[in-house]
Simulated assay, not measured.
Amino acid sequence: MSIEVVKVPLEEKAILKNLLKMYCYEWSQYNKFDVNDKGEYEFEHHISDYWDKKKHYPFFVKVNGILAGFVLIDDDFVLHPNYDYSMGEFFILHKYRRSGVGRYAAKAVFDMFRGKWEIGEHPDNISSIRFWDSVINEYTDGKYEIIKSCPNLVYHDGTCGNVISFEN
């Protein structure tokens, strides 16, 4: 199995937006977002930020050349404004989960972007919490910090999220 993390060119923004709709749908079970009258999630309208703003980076995750997910990196910090990178969004299609694809993609992105990282977790998304705790513990050899129910990270549903931070 060949796994790649490749920067999304501007001309493929519509493809990323298609994947983003699936991600937003999945996330709606946690953050309780509704769609608008056009059937769109509000977050879909912010995807251009990843080409228009500095320190915003969009990536596709591909397996054997086939789209398997995406990674969005930015500098929209909730707790550490002096950090370098935030894991804006991370999505792997169900078919590729628990196969090492997400783990590979996360580590590849961390290797591409050296510095101080911040990652938010919704406490009801148990599979995400298990994934990030495992990947980051392995990647940092246990040298990371987690703040649970951080009042600086409040999701749309009113839940305080967890914030993981580390330096690589």
Results as ranks from 00 to 15, higher is better:
Tyr96Ala: 03
Lys53His: 13
Lys54Gln: 14
Phe131Ile: 03
Glu12Ile: 01
Asn18His: 08
Glu118Ala: 07
Leu19Tyr: 14
Gly69Leu: 03
Ile147Cys: 02
Ile147Glu: 12
Asp74Pro: 03
Leu20His: 11
Ile73Lys: 03
Leu72Glu: 04
Val71Thr: 08
Leu20Pro: 00
Val101Lys: 00
Ser28Ile: 06
Tyr85Ser: 02
Tyr155Phe: 15
Cys24Glu: 15
His45Arg: 15
Pro123Met: 09
Leu20Asp: 09
Gly65Ser: 10
Asn31Arg: 05
Val8Asn: 11
Ile136Glu: 06
Ile146Cys: 04
Asn64Pro: 05
Lys53Ala: 08
Tyr30Glu: 10
Arg97Ala: 06
Ser48Thr: 12
Lys53Phe: 13
Cys150His: 14
Ala68Lys: 02
Lys54Pro: 10
Glu11Ala: 03
Leu67Lys: 13
Pro151Glu: 03
Ile66Phe: 05
Tyr139Lys: 07
Ile3Thr: 15
Ile126Leu: 13
Val135Trp: 11
Gly142Lys: 11
Lys7Leu: 15
Phe77Gly: 09
Phe113Thr: 01
Ile66Ala: 13
Met1His: 12
Glu138His: 11
Ile119Ser: 02
Glu145Pro: 00
Lys21Glu: 13
Ser165Pro: 00
Cys160Ser: 14
Asp141Arg: 14
Ser149Thr: 01
Thr140Asn: 03
Ile73Asp: 04
Val71Ile: 15
Ala68Gly: 07
Asp75Val: 00
Tyr41Cys: 02
Lys143Trp: 00
Phe90Tyr: 07
Asp157Arg: 03
Thr140Ser: 10
Asp111Leu: 09
Ser2Ala: 11
Ser165Cys: 09
Ala14Tyr: 09
